[in-house]
Simulated assay, not measured.
Amino acid sequence: MEMLHLRYFVAVAEELNFTAAARRLHMATSPLSQRIRDLEHELGQRLFDRDTHHVRLTAAGETLLPIARDVLDQVNSIPWRLREATGPRHGTMLLGMPAGIHPDLRARVNTLAERISDRVDLKRWPGVTSALIDAVRDGKLALTLARLPVGDPALDQLPVMSERLGAVVSATRFAGREAVTLAELSDFTYVSAPPEVLPPYFDVLERELADRGVRKRMKLTGTDYSGVSEVISSSAAFGFSMLDEDSPMRGYRVADVTVLPVTDFPAHMETGLVWRRDRADGGDLDDIVAIAREVFGEPILR
């Protein structure tokens, strides 16, 4: 049995969806399914009940899940435990930074860097939320800012910001408008960026839109948020983005696109500070996390 098999198993067990687990693992669904079948064959136990619509853990799968998590946690803790035991007293600590972090939140990151400067130099590491979470789980990053939700039980999180979302629409079609309703957009196509750059919340958002009658979908590939704006500016489509004028996400917008409040559909993007629980509870990040809790305090609301 290889360690990767346990990683694959835990991802599927937590997502209970092979497509979502494959996206989280940055791999295709077909080889992931094969690796799970290989693991089941080696253990002589069926770990999942699968049908067209559902994936469920079997009794054997339920038993294996906490064992696999414990093994992976022990392996993932090796790098930071070695650094703690052998590294210099004053080193470098990496903090993950997803795209579009609000200036108010960056200011608090700067404050954290100043408060811990006598212990470590805080360096920022860019990436999408899924990759940054993986890096924290694997011990490559000490902390990360991440778009919530984050459901990994090995990780702890502190909510640090809530940003209101608005509908990205054609400025020509909605000229003179200060707001829009979701009912007005129900015949429009909802367009989103590629799954690999979207925060986890957008999966929740899509389900909520479907429940409210928005059925048409367009998922772009090979682009970023600016590609969403291009499509919206020239067709009957809409998306979602931060409403705040100070949000860096406004830099992705093109001509003839505006963002309006949706009066009958409140949507908020939550950002949290995330770290490995075992590194804070008596581990090498104990003091750092305590200071971070003081610095970030109450979440910023925008």
Score class of each variant (00 low, 15 high):
Arg7Ala: 10
Phe9Trp: 03
Val12Pro: 01
Ala13Ser: 09
Glu14Arg: 10
Leu16Asn: 10
Asn17Glu: 06
Thr19Phe: 12
Ala20Trp: 03
Ala22Tyr: 09
Arg23Tyr: 11
Leu25Glu: 06
Ser30Lys: 15
Leu32Tyr: 08
Ile36Tyr: 06
Arg37Cys: 12
Leu39Ala: 05
Glu40Arg: 02
Leu43Ile: 06
Gly44Asp: 05
Arg46Trp: 00
Leu47Tyr: 02
Phe48Ser: 00
Asp49Thr: 14
His53Asp: 13
Leu57Tyr: 11
Ala59Tyr: 10
Ile67Lys: 10
Ala68His: 03
Asp70Gln: 10
Asp70Phe: 01
Val75Asn: 03
Asn76His: 10
Asn76Gly: 11
Pro79Ile: 01
Trp80Arg: 00
Trp80Thr: 00
Ala85Val: 07
Pro88Met: 11
Ala99Val: 09
Gly100Met: 10
Gly100Tyr: 10
His102Tyr: 10
Asp104Met: 13
Arg106Ala: 11
Asn110Lys: 12
Thr111Tyr: 11
Ala113Val: 15
Arg115Ile: 14
Asp118Gln: 03
Asp118Gly: 02
Asp121Ala: 15
Pro126Thr: 06
Gly127Ala: 09
Val128Glu: 08
Ile133His: 00
Ala135Ser: 11
Arg137Gly: 07
Arg137Ile: 09
Lys140Asp: 10
Lys140Thr: 12
Leu143Cys: 06
Val150Ile: 15
Gly151Thr: 09
Asp152Phe: 10
Leu155Gly: 08
Asp156Pro: 08
Gln157Leu: 07
Gln157Gly: 06
Gln157Lys: 05
Leu158Pro: 00
Pro159His: 04
Val160Cys: 12
Val160Gly: 14
Arg164Phe: 13
Gly166Phe: 03
Ala171Cys: 12
Ala175Met: 03
Gly176Glu: 12
Arg177Cys: 14
Glu178Thr: 10
Ala179Tyr: 08
Leu182Cys: 07
Ala183Pro: 06
Glu184Gly: 05
Leu185His: 05
Ser186Lys: 15
Asp187Ser: 14
Tyr190Leu: 07
Ala193Pro: 01
Ala193Tyr: 03
Pro194Ala: 07
Pro195Thr: 13
Pro195Phe: 08
Tyr201Phe: 13
Tyr201Trp: 13
Phe202Ser: 08
Phe202Lys: 12
Leu205Asn: 07
Glu206Asn: 14
Glu208Met: 08
Ala210Ile: 07
Asp211Gln: 11
Arg217Thr: 02
Met218Cys: 13
Leu220Trp: 02
Leu220Ala: 01
Thr221Leu: 10
Gly222Asn: 04
Gly222Met: 03
Thr223Pro: 00
Asp224Ala: 11
Asp224Met: 13
Tyr225His: 12
Ser226Tyr: 05
Gly227Ile: 03
Ser234Ala: 12
Ala237Trp: 05
Phe238Val: 00
Gly239Asn: 08
Ser241Leu: 15
Leu243His: 02
Glu245Ser: 14
Pro248His: 04
Met249Ser: 03
Gly251Val: 02
Gly251Cys: 04
Tyr252Phe: 11
Arg253Met: 13
Val257Leu: 09
Thr258Phe: 13
Thr258Leu: 12
Val259Ile: 11
Pro261Glu: 06
Thr263Asn: 15
Phe265Glu: 00
Pro266Tyr: 02
Thr271Pro: 15
Leu273Ser: 03
Leu273Pro: 04
Arg277Lys: 12
Arg279Gly: 04
Gly283Lys: 01
Asp286Cys: 11
Ile291Val: 07
Ile291Asp: 04
Arg293Ala: 11
Glu294Ser: 12
Glu294Tyr: 13
Phe296His: 02
Glu298Val: 11
Glu298Lys: 03
Glu298Phe: 01
